[in-house]
Computed example of a mutant assay.
Amino acid sequence: MKTERFDIHQHITNQIIASIENGAGEFRLPWHRSAGNIMRPVNIASKNAYRGVNVLTLWAAADACGYGSGTWGTYKQWAEAGAQVREGERAAYVVFYKEIIVGSEHSDESETRLFARATPVFAAEQVEGYEAPTVEEPTTVFPPIEAAETFVTNTGAIVNHGGSRAYYRPSTDSIQLPPREAFVGSPTSTPAEAYASTKLHELIHWTSAEARCNRQLGKRFGDDAYAMEELIAELGAAFLCADLRITDAPRPDHAQYLDCWLRVLKADKKAIFTASSKASEAVAFLATLQGA
C-alpha cells in the first residue's frame, strides 16, 4: 500500500492557517497570544535561535500546547543533553533546506535545487531529565525600550511624527508615526511597547526599498502583493520584538488583511515560507547597520 508523502510545506501552512482562524475574528496571530513569550525559539544543542518559518511554527506549537520554555530539540539532541522525550509526546516540525545537484537527460549541464527536509522536534516541557539553567537578566546600558530606540537610530532611517497613521512613504524614504502620546497600552503591552513595535513594523517596510532588500512581490502575488508586504512587516516586527525583548502588540488596523492572508496561504502552500524568509532577510539586513 502506497503511503502519502509528508508535505512539510502544507503541514506548516495548515498550522499557521489554523492559528489565524482560531482567533475567532480577532487579530491575534500565534506570536501575540502568550504574554511574556518574547523570545525566539532556541535549539538545545546549538543554542542558536531558529529562523524564518521555523520561528512561526514553533511559536504556534508552543501557544497551542502552553509551552513557555522556548527550548526545542530533536529526539537525539535531547538524549545527548541527558534528557528523554516522554513516550507518546507529539513532535512539532521544523524545516531545513538541502542543496541537491540534479543532472539533465538532454544536456551535460546540471543545476542545483533546494529540497525541504522536515525534522521533528520536541519542547523542553516534553522531556524528562532536563532542568533549564537559571538565566540572569542581562545587564545592559539601556533598558529594553531604549534599546529599540538605539536600534532604529543606528539604521539611519528618517522617522517623523504627526497625524494619526503609521506608514512608510517611499517617495520621501521616510517613516511617519503618530505622536508618542497617541499610543495606548493593552493587557499585554505598555504604551511604550506599542510605540516601539509599531516603529519596528514600519522599519521593516523601510527595508523594502531597492537600495536595501529590494522586495518585489507583485510578480508572484499580484493584487495581494500589498497584503503580503504587510505580513512580512508583521513577521519582521515580531522577530525584532523577540530579539529586543519587547512585547509585540497586535496591530488592530491590520485586521483588514486577515481574509487576504488566509486566501493567499490556502492557495499557495509556500507563501508563508516566502513571507517569513523575506522577514528574516529584512531583520538580518537591519542587523548589519548596527555597527560593532
Rank of each mutant, 00 (worst) to 15 (best):
P138Y: 04
T74H: 04
P144E: 03
A249L: 06
V55I: 14
D224V: 08
V127M: 06
Q216F: 14
I17L: 14
R40M: 06
K47A: 00
G82I: 04
V135A: 14
T188G: 07
C213M: 07
E229A: 15
H254G: 06
G52E: 05
S164T: 15
I8N: 01
T139L: 12
A242K: 00
W261M: 08
G291Q: 03
D223F: 10
H9S: 09
G156E: 06
A92R: 05
T74F: 03
A118Y: 12
L114I: 12
Y97V: 08
E234H: 01
H254F: 11
G88Y: 09
R28K: 15
D243W: 04
Y75A: 01
A92E: 10
P138Q: 04
D224H: 14
A233V: 10
A61T: 09
N43T: 10
L200I: 08
S107H: 08
W78S: 00
P41H: 04
V121D: 01
A196E: 12
Y168N: 07
H161N: 08
R90F: 02
T198F: 02
H11D: 08
F273S: 02
A287W: 13
Q10R: 13
G66C: 03
K270F: 07
C65D: 08
E4S: 13
R180K: 15
A60Q: 13
T190G: 09
M228G: 07
A238P: 07
A211Y: 09
P191R: 10
T150N: 15
G25N: 13
F142E: 10
H9F: 14
P138F: 02
L244P: 01
T139Q: 15
